[in-house]
């Protein structure tokens, strides 16, 4: 079983040289720490920066330089800054090669829910609906089950949707799965996790073909 850092490390393996990448709040933000050495990517934050760098050193925080999670950040050499309309032109116009975001629920047809629990929690969708509606390559980073042990990989989402039929790949603490027309296809197992464990934790349709390899993390 992976922890959140393990999930981030596994998704970092998906990064390809030259990509522009948008990372959501939570686990996705951690991915920036595990970019492979031979890969150069630029991180976009939808509040208006391309070429986002690491957190500033203590004492060098700038209130005018934050990411979409409102955290203080730095700008890499060659970074650029723009307004919100331009930022979403990059996103809607498919100039960003990969979007990674968290989710509360994913359905086996690629539907995603991550912005609202009716009557209980309404934080808003932020940029998530624009991102999932347009991105060609969407990876969801999340735990396989919720705090009550219930599967987050469902036949159908129960919460209000963020987007329809858009998720391509899911990396959880238990597995890597792809969304196919016939359901979730198991691609890799987390270290020490059996196919049976994954089947038990997955409510949506699960396709298992042959020996499913274990993830290899650096």
């Amino acid at each position: 079983m992976l922890d959140k850092i393990g999930i981030a490390k596994r998704i970092a393996q998906e990064l390809q040289d030259g990509w522009y990448v948008n990372l959501g709040i939570g686990i996705p933000t951690l991915i920036a720490n595990y970019v492979p050495d031979n890969v150069n990517v630029e991180f976009q934050s939808e509040n208006g920066i391309l070429g986002m760098g690491p957190f500033p050193f203590e004492g060098e925080e700038d209130a005018d330089l934050i990411n979409a999670g409102k955290q203080t950040i730095t700008a890499m050499p060659g970074a650029c800054i723009f307004d919100s309309a331009t930022s979403f032109a990059m996103i809607r116009g498919q100039h960003i090669q990969l979007t990674v975001l968290g989710a509360m629920e994913v359905a086996d047809n690629g539907d995603i829910a991550n912005w609202k629990i009716p009557g209980r929690m309404v934080k808003g969708m932020g940029g998530a609906m624009d991102l999932v509606a347009s991105a060609e390559n969407i990876i969801v980073a999340m735990m396989h089950t919720n705090k009550r042990g219930k599967s987050k990989l469902l036949r159908q989402c129960t919460l209000p949707l963020t987007g329809v039929k858009c998720v391509k790949r899911i990396v959880t603490n238990m597995a890597v799965l792809d969304v196919t027309p016939d359901g979730f296809k198991l691609i890799e197992r987390a270290p020490g996790v059996s196919i049976e464990d994954i089947q038990a934790a997955t409510e949506g349709r699960l396709i298992v073909e042959g020996d499913v390899p274990e993830m290899v993390l650096a």
Partner: peptide, 26 residues
């Protein structure tokens, strides 16, 4: 959606009364 909010403001100032976007469909 954040991108729709930004574009709706931009459109308001740019004399574009409305536009189509994929964000939020479904």
């Amino acid at each position: 959606p954040q991108g729709s909010l930004a574009e709706r403001c931009r459109a308001g100032g740019a004399g574009i009364p409305a536009f189509f976007t994929p964000a939020g469909y479904g």
